[in-house]
Each structure stands twice: as structure tokens, then as C-alpha cells.
Write a protein that binds this DNA or RNA. Structure first.
Lengths: 83, 83
DNA sequence: AGATATTTGTTCGTATGTATC
DNA sequence: GGATACATACGAACAAATATC
């Protein structure tokens, strides 16, 4: 959960979410906190929360469905196409 | 009905509703305009209308029932517990 | 029981304006 | 001017509760 003062807030929060996914707190396919949740938990504005999720989405960590939320992406390296 | 340019729309609309309640246009227990009504009357987006009603709810002016609408709260100061 | 309409609750997408650094 | 961050506001979609037919 370590914050770095020298990083912008949206990167700090993104880091926290990444850590939780790595720790299994949020598992593949399950929903991660909504932008509204992030607003409340971290005391940030909605646009900042949106920026957090956008970053995680662009790096492939989560995928997003409008009206539903964002979900942890399935593992990328441990998924053989066949056998 | 006076609008104040220096206030956000959702506050302006909330002010109008409060005035109507004070004037008796909407009486205790009766339904206030739905979010859809507010959208049409004031030309605002649904989320803005929702914000209006949330503010009025949080200050105790109205109460809301999902699927039904919002209603003017009963008077708070003229209600002795017994006699 | 099922379909439909109305209404609120919640979610993400996007744009604009303001302020600060 | 650009990046960060806040608040406001509109748009779109999904969800759940209520009522009526």
C-alpha cells in the first residue's frame, strides 16, 4: 500500500489496485472497485478515478464494460491455447 | 424561482423544488417531480436531476422509494411525540 | 405468470471550466 | 503550455423495484 509522494495520485491509486490484484484480493474475472468506490476510498475526484482505471485498462490489467464496471483480466502467461 | 448564475445548475434546481415545497405546491407526502420530469422541465441531464434529488434527500426535504419516486417529507418541527 | 412502462440506483464515457504547479 | 486534480454536466448502458395490464 506504499504511497510515493513523488508520484501523481492517479498513479499511486493504480499501484494500490495492481497490488491487490497481485495479492489475489481481486481475482481474475471479478469486479474491481467502481470509480465511485475509488472516489470514496481514496478521496479523489471522479475524473481522477477514471484516469486510474483507464491506465489499468490500457496496460491490460483490467477490462471494462460500460454500465457494469471493470474486471480483472484473465492471466496472460499461464493460458496455453490447447495442449 | 430566481436563478443564480454563480451556482451550479443542480443547486439552482434544488432551490426551485425547495421553494415549491415551502409554498405548498408540493405538500407533505405527495410526490415531487420524477427525475424524468426534471429533465424535461429544466432541460438537464438525468444524472444532474439525480444529483438534485440526492441533495434534497440528504437534507431531509424528501424521501425516495425506488421504482416509485420521491415524496415530500413530513414536517419535522411540528410533530410532538405524544401529547 | 408474463410483458410492458415508469422510476430510481449505479456504472462507465466524455467534454468543459477552473486552479495549481 | 503541459500535467495534475477538482467540480460540473451531458450521454449511454445496465440493473432493480414498482405498478399495471
Amino acid at each position: 500500500m506504499e504511497f510515493r509522494e513523488d508520484q501523481p495520485r492517479w498513479q499511486q491509486v493504480a499501484h494500490v489496485i495492481r497490488e491487490r490484484i497481485a495479492a489475489g484480493t481481486y481475482r481474475p474475472g471479478s469486479r474491481v472497485p467502481s470509480e465511485n468506490d475509488l472516489m470514496q476510498e481514496f478521496g479523489i475526484a471522479r475524473m481522477t478515478a477514471h484516469k486510474v482505471m483507464r491506465a489499468l485498462r490500457e496496460e491490460g490489467t483490467v477490462y471494462t464494460v460500460r454500465g457494469m464496471g471493470s474486471f480483472v483480466s484473465p492471466p496472460q502467461d499461464t493460458e496455453p491455447t490447447d495442449g
